[in-house]
Design a protein around this nucleic acid. Structure first.
Lengths: 228, 228
DNA sequence: CACTTATGAATGAAGG
DNA sequence: CCTTCATTCATAAGTG
């Protein structure tokens, strides 16, 4: 197709007119494009960080939405207040501990559900406690007592000394040299998020079609007049 | 300014011509706009997650990036061949976990043999897994969820009970209502990252003008021909 | 302050 | 499905 100069000029003028009046929904001004650019880049950078965070936190195998590392986000107050608090661990008071020890000494076997209830309610008189706490305490007490016994008896041979728990010094968790890991993040962001791959990380952007997600877009679009 | 019908039509034709030939750098086709939309929304969603993570981690006074240093990257997903830590026990990767959680929330009852197979094969795409693992996971998930429920309803002393074994079933992703928090995040993302606020989170997007960040944009721009 | 120990809690797996 | 075990996390407290 051929276009004469005059036609082109006229068309350009028309286009500018439409743009300036926001009548042409699919056309953006330079300013708008630049703004959009900044935002996309910002999002890209931010998302990279997310991936990084996500990766590192994921290593703790406890990334289950509400629980982030050792932090808990109270779902009830997860509104504006975003109350994210550090987990507090129960600790038996000396009195409670003594009682527990006594019961443990006498106890022939496992506490049992009903027994737990009783113990818990008894200990509740001496401080804050829950049945779960009692349950855990006995669980750990038993296990560790057993392990200690094992360790002391079989001390001759360094065979089963490969016990964990007390040998956590040289922990393998010391960053298995993943420099390429970090380097790859930038690439991952793009490959992950800009393709329709079935990559599992798609979960992260599963909201794309959600209502809120769409709102996000709507806001953005309005802001830039993309929707006309 | 006034435009005659003919002029407008001609201008439109010209515009279409330019668009179709990619000669008009500032104009996007519907398809491109839609793609862009998706990506922006995706980034928005992702960034939301970052904000969430960031906030929770910020709760740590000692958070200054070193937190990331302490963490190690998941050996299972870091590099394909390198298995640094030989885990004897299966541990779901974050992605697997999310999928499992989703299924769990939707699933009305027990997965069933055939269902297990399906799930296992799906999860196998995201890491090592066996049907037994899936089976056990659901078993434990249900049992612990149940126990937690019991504990919370049974004892009225509630309060700061050191909850364990599962974090409520109805919170998390599904999150039908009470999404003010989520809704606000979208706004926050925009206000946080697109203003010159002194918010500490600006640190996160310090890269906006960095070379890599710009590359991100460049790639994106090329992909969509924004740069002409 | 770095390192170790003690311990509450989380969780995959096994037994019944 | 329930109970129990074994292992592993994460962290506070203790120690050099």
């Amino acid at each position: 197709m051929e276009w004469e100069n005059q036609e082109m000029q006229q068309a350009e003028e028309y286009l500018q007119f439409q743009i300036q009046n926001g009548l042409c929904g699919k056309v953006m001004t330079d300013v708008q494009v630049e703004e959009l650019r900044k935002q996309i880049v910002a999002y890209a950078a931010i998302s990279e960080q997310l991936v990084e965070l996500h990766k590192s936190m994921s290593a703790h195998h406890d990334f289950t939405g509400m629980r982030l590392g050792n932090l808990y986000c109270d779902p009830l107050s997860a509104s504006i207040g975003h109350k994210i608090t550090a987990r507090q661990r129960w600790t038996p008071t000396p009195l409670q501990l003594q009682i527990l020890e006594n019961i443990y000494e006498q106890g022939t076997g496992t506490p049992g559900k009903q027994k737990i209830k009783e113990i818990a309610s008894e200990l509740a008189q001496h401080g804050q406690i829950s049945e779960t706490n009692v349950y855990n305490w006995f669980q750990n007490r038993r296990a560790r007592s057993k392990r200690k016994l094992q360790a002391s008896t079989g001390s001759g041979n360094g065979e089963s000394e490969a016990r964990s728990e007390d040998v956590g010094t040289k922990d393998k968790r010391t960053k298995p040299a993943g420099s390429d890991f970090v380097d790859n993040i930038a690439n991952r962001v793009e490959s992950f998020y800009f393709q329709n791959s079935e990559s599992g990380i798609d979960q992260l952007i599963g909201k794309v079609e959600s209502s809120r997600g769409y709102d996000s877009y709507t806001n953005l679009a309005e802001q830039y007049g993309l929707l006309g």
